[in-house]
Amino acid sequence: MADEKDTAAEAPKKSNKMLMVVIAMALVILGGGGAGAFFMLRGDSASAAEEKPVKGAVVAIDSALTVNLADGHYLKFGFALQMTEAAGHEEIDTSQALNLAIEQYTGRPIAELSTEEGRNKLKAELLEKIEKAYEVEEKQMVMDLYFTSFVTQ
């Protein structure tokens, strides 16, 4: 009987030691990973904050556009450009933005414009083209695009 008590008393000591070693290793690994992530993300957010442009004036495009879609449907839409502070307050020529919008949406299937995902994808593509077209001396002049109307039929 004495041997059984000694064996039972030794088993918890071994498992406690092993448990403590496993916990210590987990803390070291998690601590190192957490510190690494903190320093990596901290650098990204600081550089992203520097690159993010400041909002300037909004340039509304007065006339709505009507373009032909595929299969006899059409799209009538209007939009405005969110300029950056770097663009200043000078009046800009919106002809290029209008032309890019017409090219972007003409001939598209109405099914693509019927879903939020499809509209957002096309809008992001249009914004990218407009940002590139209105970039002056590596300064971003346009930072967003707002639809003021959007009707399909």
Rank of each mutant, 00 (worst) to 15 (best):
D6N: 12
D6E: 13
T7E: 14
A8L: 13
E10Y: 07
E10H: 02
P12I: 09
P12K: 10
P12T: 08
K13A: 07
K13R: 14
K14S: 08
K17E: 11
M18V: 11
M20P: 04
V21A: 14
I23K: 10
A24V: 08
M25E: 07
L27S: 10
V28K: 03
V28A: 08
V28G: 01
I29R: 05
G32F: 00
G32C: 05
G32V: 00
G32Q: 05
G33S: 08
G33P: 04
G34N: 07
G34D: 07
A35C: 07
A35I: 13
F38L: 13
M40I: 09
R42K: 15
R42H: 14
G43C: 03
S45H: 11
A46I: 11
A46G: 05
E51Q: 11
E51M: 15
P53N: 05
V54E: 15
G56S: 00
V59W: 00
A60I: 12
D62R: 11
A64F: 01
A64K: 04
T66D: 03
V67W: 03
A70C: 00
A70Y: 06
G72E: 02
H73D: 14
L75M: 09
L75P: 01
L75W: 05
F79M: 08
A80T: 05
L81P: 02
Q82V: 09
M83S: 08
M83P: 03
T84D: 02
A86P: 03
G88F: 02
H89T: 09
E90Y: 04
E90Q: 08
D93T: 00
D93V: 00
T94I: 07
S95I: 03
Q96G: 04
A97T: 05
L98C: 11
L98Y: 06
N99I: 09
